[in-house]
Amino acid sequence: MAVVNLPSGPLTLSGRTAWETPAGPPSSRIAYAAAHVVADPRAENAPGAPAVLDWEATLAFRRHLWSHGLGVAEAMDTAQRGMGLDYAATRELVRRSAAEAAACGGRIVAGVATDQLPPGPASLDQIRFAYERQLADVSEAGAVPVLMCSRHLAATAHDADDYLAIYRPLLDVADQPVVLHWLGTAFDPALEGYWGSSDVDKATESVLELINSNPAKVDGIKISLLDADHEIRLRRRLPPGVRLYTGDDFNYPELIRGDEQGYSDALLGIFAAIAPAAAAAFAALDRGDLESYDRIFAPTVPLSRHIFKKPTFYYKTGIVFLAWLAGHQPHFTMVGGLQSGRSVPHFAELIELADAAGLLPDPDLAAHRANRFFEVTVG
């Protein structure tokens, strides 16, 4: 038996992992997993230091996601954009991941932002140029661009017109349809008032004005506001051919399942942690087996809500901890020293929830690593 000595008492891991690897990507939905990066534990990955990655482990994790039929959303906030991953490392990450995707036929989108600019004030012209440079980098690498929310733009823009003045020219120069990105303040408090208003309904009108002005250049929009009702309302107003990619890590099963008026595709950080279960759920959805779809996803939701609990922007720490327990990387180290972002009780509950969801494929390994962690942190 694999027993974890949690601070609250021993836990015998169930070892329940019965997920079959699918033959290919899902046919009924498009699904991307926003992948984390694996730090080099021998490098100076301290707060404020340039990121140094373990490239083999980082790319191996992406191959794991593609093997389960999921696309990879590269260099997103899950990869610690703005929380340890600098743009030099980001550019190389996109280049290497896109080459891996081409080699295996996997889907890949990649984040375009303005984080090569120094912290502090920037003009709208500087912001537009930074976006254009990254847009070119991602397109040249061979990935589909995701126009990410920019902290610089949130700090500089005065109203919706400033956002449209940035985004419309980007759509014009893009050589392919892009994915827009709307990240809520739970994920990044610096994005307050994005799209020109702190009123979500007013901001939504600005988003729709942008999309409707050039729908042929918009593949879809990724929404991470953790508001399922708002997502459904926006989804129903999108022009034909423009997808809604849910980024709601609390309510994803019902949003992806959809209703009589449509459904959401997915671009989710939690999919990096639950890839085998997510692949099995999509396979059930493809064959019309909604009972199995609901049953498979159900135990992943408490896990996701725990990983993404407030302060939500530290969810990356839980994602990496679970990747370590599941054997996807040999250590629990993060760029920027972010492994300290969650508490011992948080990790203890994460282990219980991951085991209940069948996401610890090697219980003996998971128990061994968890016990070492608690021995060091608790004594």
Rank of each mutant, 00 (worst) to 15 (best):
R62H: 09
R128F: 07
A39M: 00
P276A: 07
D227W: 00
K222E: 10
P177H: 05
D188N: 15
L244Y: 03
A160W: 03
L303H: 06
E260S: 15
T17P: 08
E231F: 03
A60Y: 03
H158V: 12
K316C: 11
A186F: 09
L147C: 04
R369E: 11
A228C: 03
F321A: 02
A99S: 14
T204I: 00
V38A: 06
A190P: 08
D40E: 01
D54W: 00
C149L: 10
L85F: 11
K310S: 14
G106Q: 00
I274E: 06
L338D: 08
G262I: 13
M1I: 13
A354Q: 08
V38T: 15
F282W: 15
D54K: 03
T21P: 04
T58Y: 02
A190Y: 14
G336H: 05
W195D: 08
V38D: 01
R42Y: 10
E349Y: 04
G318M: 00
S304P: 07
L180Q: 07
D362F: 05
Y131F: 15
G269E: 09
V52I: 11
A35V: 11
T333M: 04
A354F: 02
Q134Y: 00
A79N: 05
A275P: 05
R342C: 12
P239E: 10
P26Y: 04
L59F: 03
D286W: 10
